[in-house]
């Protein structure tokens, strides 16, 4: 694997209003990597993701996405940069008034000059990639949770983005569906070489897909661990990291127990 960084986060501080959630965080994501952001509830995982996909402007610091600094772009340029990424939202965020095929075709129609017929062939290929052949004319409300996620993934991949972001891909899915989605993520990463950034706290998912992780912490408002999840599980000295990977409540402080699962 080439070790060329595709996302560089430098001294990033984000938050809402006066509250700082993450304080001067820096890390790199390399090209083609399966990168997982994890941490307990309320540690700023989702905030970090939102900052990386340009939904909330950072207080300070830089996010360099494939050579472009997100924080200094104006609206039009930002949208151009964002075309390099795809996002699978937690609830899949499919448009309820459109069929699955129309959802996937929307970005393709907007940004490529392909004729209609070719677009429908392409949409069929995309849906085939996520094993949703035959569901073109279904509406999102007619799909199950796992199918919605896969359709959302097909839409996120519509323009073959360099980087795919996943917000809690296994949230709300049963273990089997969730494992299938993990397999699909691995498969797409291998066959297409897309860089994937996943926010999750599902331990099994983490061990199944992650090549490298960063773990965020609520108290230090920053990264407390970085590296291979299996190595961290077995060798980390940090008590929070240990507890997280071994799925144990914080014993000395029962009031806050549960936040690490």
């Amino acid at each position: 694997m080439t070790r060329k960084p595709i996302i560089q986060v430098r001294e990033l501080s984000v938050g809402y209003g006066d509250v700082i959630i993450l304080d001067r965080v820096s890390f790199d994501v390399y090209e083609g990597e399966l990168f997982v952001i994890l941490g307990g509830s309320g540690c700023g995982k989702s905030t970090l993701l939102k900052a990386m996909i340009g939904l909330i402007p950072p207080f300070s610091g830089q996010i360099i996405m494939d050579g472009d600094d997100l924080s200094i772009q104006d609206e039009t340029n930002l949208q151009k940069v964002l075309r390099k990424i795809g996002v699978l939202y937690q609830g899949a965020a499919l448009f309820g008034s459109m069929t699955v095929a129309e959802n996937v075709a929307l970005p393709i129609e907007e940004y490529t000059p392909l004729p209609r017929e070719s677009i429908s062939t392409l949409v069929r290929m995309k849906l085939g990639l996520v094993s949703l052949q035959g569901y073109e004319n279904h509406f999102p409300s007619e799909l199950s949770g796992g199918m919605k996620k896969r359709a959302g993934l097909a839409r996120a991949m519509a323009l073959n983005p360099k980087i795919l972001f996943f917000d809690e891909p296994s949230a709300g899915l049963d273990p089997i569906t969730s494992a299938e989605l993990d397999d699909l993520i691995l498969h797409l990463n291998r066959s297409l070489g897309t860089t994937m950034v996943i926010v999750t706290h599902e331990l099994e998912s983490i061990f199944a897909v992650a090549q490298r992780i960063i773990m965020l912490d609520k108290h230090s408002k920053g990264i407390i661990a970085e590296g291979d999840p299996r190595y961290l599980r077995d060798h980390s000295q940090n008590p929070f990291v240990k507890q997280f990977f071994n799925r144990r409540a914080i014993e000395e402080d029962l009031d806050t127990a549960g936040k690490d699962t």
Binding site: T121, M125, G128, L129, Q133, E136, N137
Partner: peptide, 21 residues
């Protein structure tokens, strides 16, 4: 070749037209 087989390249044409309701 890998990619074309993932995409089911050989049978893509033969697929039936999607049923309209």
């Amino acid at each position: 070749k890998d990619l074309l087989s993932i995409l089911d390249f050989d049978s893509l044409d033969e697929q039936l037209p999607i049923q309209k309701k």
